[in-house]
Nucleic acid binder design. Structure first.
Lengths: 340, 340
DNA sequence: GTTGGCACTCCCATCAGACGAGTGCCAGAC
DNA sequence: GTCTGGCACTCGTCTGATGGGAGTGCCAAC
């Protein structure tokens, strides 16, 4: 049984431990929080909480430290998300409204998130896979060298160079441009590559080879999920505040280099809920000392990517959750605007 | 006077210290390197080297550690660049040849460089300022919404959205496209913005407003040196091997967040020479414990950007210098190819 | 100029002891 | 039945002393 006061005690322990990074004892607890009971009572509650696995004693004569299970209960039951201050809200909106393109949005967001939370922030670039083709542009750099530019509904722009065997006249190029766009505009990117398949047969025979080259590269760019794996990271310096270097900082630094690992950490969180993964709950045993607070983003219900923060299990969950949610909402809104 | 054997002793000290991270004594030195003299002799040389400020004794009964001045002499006089192994060369060329666009080149290079050197690698994105305009594309997303795409000689592509007051017909757009390209193609980007200035007056009056909007955004994109300040960083996890966290790792982690600081660290190294900045020689006193090995890159003699590695003063200078030079050459070559 | 010997310095690892924060438990109060 | 004050106990940490050892500087001999 976990009654109300025990919850209060747990919350107090979590808050104090997060603030001081030191095991918290019964006496200090009563002093710092107006619990209205004596240290002895708190000790009884602590013994019960420990019995149930919510807190833990590093050694017999030390204070208590929350366990992963304790943080979990704290997050599930107690955390009322700290609302962002209006100053913070304003900072978010003015910063992100000033972004000039998609990369800029991502980079500004990740930076912002790390500053708001004083943690390491991670933002996944919007995936291509759910977006549609808005326009394909073919630009002749030289008669036999084209630049293909693929503009997607998310605002993402992909570019590719193509070498042609035979030169292509301007008029032919224009025809081809129309044909390609007719075939792909508005089509989901996954389907667009297939939609181009017939094109080489549909054009005049003398253009077939060139068209084939173009279609090949274009299809490759469309099905290239490389950018699905792109993430931006910021705030690594915040790791310096960690206590234990070898068990906490080093594994995380290594993980930050591996974008695939980061994506797995962020997970496929739904666009609405903020997901909290605490310590061992995560997929990597080396990262048992770190927690992840993440959520998805994207206009409406379309999940375009995830963003979040990683930090020590001993972190400010309410604050981080609020910041993650706020940034995700602003990013979603901006992507939506660019998409009308 | 620093005679030949003393140089040998210094080199041996540097090499051993780099390898072991521990002060090196006279006895161990003679054992590990075939110096052909006795420890006592080496001690005499060490005393002289210390007198001249090349090495330093942490405490009376400890071995010697190179000073910044000692590393400097080591780098200037002794380092024969380790040639890259053929396996390494092949790894570099196959990796970088597989890059699909400019961002990809930069990202692959930085990753490669950090892996080769096991240090933190930094690559500056090519500056816009020295590049010329290759093509400007105007794409109508909706009748009143254009996407401007600016293709530069370095392969860089900038994109901007423009909202127009009044709709623009396809034919008008085509005219405008021709006019813009006639004014700017091949022009240095710094001059291109100015070259566009007259355009609104040269078109038909009913297009003047739209043209003005387009020109404004385009000029802004051209003179936007934001991307001059972009850098890619990789290999942060290698910091984990550092010994002293507070004096060495933390300041560097903080510096890595500030791209402006990084750019200053990289400096404006000439495209040919590899610059080595050791400890206090650098511009930041907080980074007195870190060295920078950097060089410029760019096809021919055009300096498009810098790249390099940062690490502890106690680093493998010959190896890092060789890797930095090799990567810079490959990057230059690739940029050159894309530029014909 | 080089070498072997030797006394000296001083860091570091180890250990014992004092200290104190924090606990668990118990008897008594509300 | 729950809370509280008291008290003995535990155990990590801090302090100071001690010994070992790596490395030095100097000197006399080659």
């Amino acid at each position: 049984m976990v009654d109300d006061r025990k919850l209060d005690v747990l919350r107090a322990i979590v808050e104090d431990y997060v603030a001081t990074e030191e095991p918290v004892g019964s006496k200090a607890l009563v002093e710092r929080h107006g619990l209205g009971v004596s240290p002895a009572t708190v000790r009884n509650d602590m013994a019960a909480l420990e019995e149930e696995g919510y807190i833990h004693q590093p050694h017999t004569s030390a204070g208590r430290v929350p366990t992963d299970k304790g943080y979990r209960l704290f997050v599930d039951k107690l955390a009322t998300l700290k609302p962002m201050s209006t100053a913070e809200r304003r900072a978010i909106s003015t910063l992100l409204d000033g972004a000039v393109d998609l990369d800029d949005v991502v980079q500004k967001s990740v930076r912002l998130l790390s500053q708001l939370t004083r943690q390491v922030a991670i933002v996944q670039y919007p995936t291509l896979s759910r977006s549609t083709v808005r326009h394909v542009e073919l630009v002749a750099l030289t008669p036999t060298r084209l630049m293909l530019i693929l503009i997607l509904s998310t605002g993402r722009v992909e570019q590719r160079l193509v070498e042609l065997e035979t030169a292509l006249a301007d008029a032919e190029l224009a025809e081809l441009r129309v044909a390609v766009n007719r075939a792909t505009a508005g089509v989901q990117i996954a389907a667009a590559a297939a939609a181009l398949g017939d094109l080489p047969d549909a054009v005049r025979p003398e253009q077939a080879d060139s068209t084939r080259s173009i279609v090949t590269v274009l299809a490759e760019a469309m099905s290239d999920h490389r950018s699905d794996e792109r993430v931006a990271v910021s705030g690594t310096a915040n790791l310096a505040r960690y206590g234990d270097f070898d068990t906490a900082v080093r594994p995380l630094l290594e993980a930050l280099e591996e974008h695939v690992v980061l994506l797995k950490l962020l997970g496929e969180s739904g666009a609405d809920a903020v997901t909290v993964r605490i310590g061992h709950e995560g997929p990597y045993s080396e990262l048992a000392a770190t927690s992840v607070v993440a959520t998805g983003y994207g206009p409406m219900d379309a999940h375009l990517g995830s963003l979040g923060v990683v930090g020590p299990t001993r972190m400010d969950y309410p604050g981080s959750m609020a910041a993650v949610r706020a940034v995700a909402r602003y990013v979603s809104r901006i992507l939506d605007e660019g998409n009308q």
